[in-house]
Amino acid sequence: MEETATSTTSMQQERTGWSSLPADLLVDIVDLLPWSSHPRFAAVCKHWRSAVSPFYPGWLTPVLLNAVDIGCTNLRYYSPYHHKIFEVSSELETPNAKICCTRGRHLTLCQQNDDEITVAHVDLVTGVIRDSYPVDHDSFDFVIYDGERRRMFGISAVGVLQVVRAIQSDAGGWYRWEFSEFSPDEPKIIIASPMTSPVIHRGLLYLLGVDGRLAVYDDGRHEQGLVVLDKPKGFGGLDCDDCYLFESDEGELMAVLMGRRGAPVRVVKLNEQEMEWEEVESLQGRALFTGTPTTMMVKTNFEWMQNKIFVPRLHSWPESLQVYLEEREGELAFVPVSTAPVEQDGGGTREMGIWSCGLEPQPSSSSEFWETIKFYHSIWVDFSN
């Protein structure tokens, strides 16, 4: 009996000792932990919770990078989960540039000065901007970055199709641009969808036409440039005003078709054996983020996001917070600049924050869609990787 009482007293003293650690020591410990460990750390006791600064995970869902005026301006991110805008203190100093594509934490911009183009490759976390060598060219309709093979491709899609390639060196710089060949006697023409970036799929680069046709580029045969495929010939009778090409989380080539008023919204998948578009009836619990040059399909544990398609249009303007974008062990979070307590909302409860829809039958017109606030100069960014 005495042994049991002694053991209980010892456990109580040990528990009391842990809960009375100095606050500055607890803060140092928290700073060494990944962001995803902070909720468990804060759940230990009130004293430990006081050492955890407020933060908003950046990896929960894709976030919408937005800048009112592309150039010398602060970057802003909209989180559909928190329905908040996070404004990062660092500036994006790329005047006269347009957003082209994103890949993980990297943003690609196309900057035009007179008759010369420079492509800027931005690390969104460090703020480092790496410019590729300028190219004597009027404009690129699309620019896409292949991070795995360290390639940058500029594509001209108005009139004759042409691809210009730049290769990244081991030191991080870029070799000079290389032009693909083309024959004026045999022009390769496709009316490309202006709202979506080309997509790299199984090592090849695909460009989508507004009618559902595809052009493909093989980096191993750079001199051939883009080749317009005989099939698919179209979307199989499905009409749309905007179409967005993307690769699904399972490696399938897919496209989102949107009507002028938001609805109807259809999703199609390329049957690569028959080379035909097939309509998808279900997202199988996934969420689809589209309406910008980059479209993303992701798995989500939030029920209100499952089987939904999200576009950059808001029902109401959200709260804006000044934040730092910080990384810990590969996890990114938005940390408020102010040290004042921030109410951590449950998130995922504001279904009316961002406009969304499913694949079920939809009305042919929607006044609700036009009444929403559109994010211009925006693109989806996935910080989950």
Rank of each mutant, 00 (worst) to 15 (best):
R286N: 15
A287D: 12
V280P: 06
E303P: 04
T290S: 10
Q306L: 04
E274L: 14
L283P: 04
E368G: 00
V268H: 00
S338W: 00
T349L: 12
Q306V: 06
T290K: 05
A287Q: 00
P361F: 10
E279P: 07
F310E: 11
P318H: 13
G285T: 04
E327R: 05
E278G: 03
T339K: 13
A287N: 02
A340C: 10
N307G: 12
P363C: 11
G353L: 07
V323Q: 10
M352Y: 05
P312C: 02
V298P: 10
N307H: 07
A340T: 12
L270K: 03
G348S: 10
G347M: 11
S366Y: 01
Y324P: 04
G347Y: 08
S320R: 15
T292H: 03
K269E: 15
G346N: 01
E360Q: 13
V342M: 13
G291C: 00
R328D: 10
Y324H: 15
M352F: 04
E279W: 04
T349C: 08
E368L: 00
T294E: 15
M296E: 07
Q273I: 11
V298A: 07
W277A: 09
Q284A: 14
V280L: 15
S366R: 00
W277K: 04
E278P: 01
L314M: 03
E279M: 13
C357T: 14
T290F: 02
V268E: 11
E329D: 13
G347H: 12
E319T: 12
T290A: 13
S320T: 15
W370N: 13
G285I: 05
N307S: 15
G285F: 12
S356N: 15
H315Y: 15
N301Y: 06
W355P: 07
S364C: 10
S338T: 14
G330H: 04
Q322K: 12
S316N: 11
G348H: 01
E319W: 02
Q273H: 08
F302M: 13
W277L: 11
S366P: 02
E351I: 05
S364R: 14
F289Q: 06
L288Q: 08
C357Q: 04
K308L: 01
G330V: 05
E331M: 06
F369P: 14
R328K: 15
G285D: 09
W277C: 08
